[in-house]
Design a protein around this nucleic acid. Structure first.
Lengths: 213, 213
DNA sequence: GGCAAGATCTATGTATACACAGGCGGAGAA
DNA sequence: TTCTCCGCCTGTGTATACATAGATCTTGCC
């Protein structure tokens, strides 16, 4: 693994997991010492992070970790609804039925994954990730897929901000199952509607459980 | 101006204007000599271009200029319709009426700009650019605006591919005027419809006038 | 004669030295 | 005592030397 990849992965993880608080200044020398690599790969990592929007270049004084405000969350979900709604509709038109039927079945069994004593809910989020990937691949549109991927980075940060109570996760799993079912049935309108519903519930939950800064 | 900015701007322009053909390998040393800067700023420039999708890292063999296929154009317009349709609707709801009334009036006078003997149609494209900026600013959604900006880079490349005949430009100006008018009237549905119409016409024109590779 | 393996070469990946700019602190004068 | 100016110092911006990996070409063997 290249040193710049390692630096990028570490910093990205630290930001997403909120170990690096918004506003934190990431100086090149400081980070290069912390990560045990030289300034060059750190520079590249910081440049990639800034391109993604996780950090912002603060003219002359290094880069700082980007903040997420309540308004940002509203904006993100507004874009997310647009992109994922369209994606679900396209997936219903173009996707392979069997793939989404299997995901639907797996999502109905999701409560088993959530009730287990896995605090990070790794298996559950991996399953939801598989649904995302299946949609990405079904839509046959790399530009749309790319736009959703860029947005997801920020959404993971928001997810970490919200409470992962099992009640909400069980409900969310059912909503995801509904999306998968609608796509499997080939009904574009229904898939879009199921996505809209899920996103509105998610946003409400985030805003209800957390009162950011 | 920083050397890396200069390298980035030059390479970006060369790619967009098709002076660097798709598939061209951009070696770091070669470009650093051509641009008169060292490898470090060239690396940063290439990394930024790859993040935008104008170049692709070709494992071990430098970066190559990205190609645009007919399928790519379809995909780009599919995403564009989703994003700009939503943006037009939001602008109608949230924008300031007077701004778009002025743009509407200016766009109705666009034929004057096009008939002049300006082969690059600078003034016309600047006016359309002002409409884009007005929408970006009216929607009050930086994530959506960012997604549209990333896409526009690629769209400019496509525009250069298509024939800029004045007949199409005059029609496009009227379509843009209709969008501005709909936004000014505050009618979200109408603004979205006008955008959809314009994009379909644009896509048809691109596909009709050009038979890429 | 063809295929495979190794050496060489060329390109990127990394480290580091140097240049330079912007900010902060201290000192001097009003 | 306060304001201003100068110098230092810390940070990024750039250049370059060195490490390393992958590809290609050559040579030897089958």
């Amino acid at each position: 693994m290249r040193a710049s990849d390692k630096a990028y992965a570490t910093l990205r993880e630290d930001i997403i997991e909120w170990r690096l608080a918004p506003g934190t200044v990431l100086a090149e020398v400081e980070q290069s010492e912390r990560l045990g690599v030289s300034r060059t790969p750190v520079r590249e990592a910081l440049s990639r992070l800034s391109a993604e929007g996780l950090t912002t270049a603060a003219g002359g004084r290094g880069v700082v970790v980007t903040d997420i405000s309540l308004d940002d969350i509203d904006e993100m979900f507004e874009l997310r609804e647009t992109l994922e709604g369209k994606a679900a509709a396209l997936a219903a038109e173009r996707g392979e039925r069997t793939v989404f039927e299997q995901l639907h079945a797996a999502l109905l069994r999701a409560p088993e994954l959530i009730s287990e004593s896995d605090p990070a809910r790794h298996e559950y989020y991996a399953l939801v990730g598989r649904l995302d990937e299946a949609i990405d691949s079904a839509i046959s549109n790399s530009y749309l897929a790319q736009a959703m991927r860029s947005l997801r980075v920020h959404l993971v940060r928001v997810r970490r901000l919200a409470a992962d109570d099992s009640q909400r996760l069980n409900a969310a799993a059912l909503e995801h199952a509904a999306i998968a079912e609608a796509i499997a049935s080939g009904n574009a309108k229904l898939a879009e509607a199921a996505t809209t519903l899920h996103l509105h519930r998610s946003l409400s939950h985030v805003k209800a459980t957390h009162s950011p800064h």
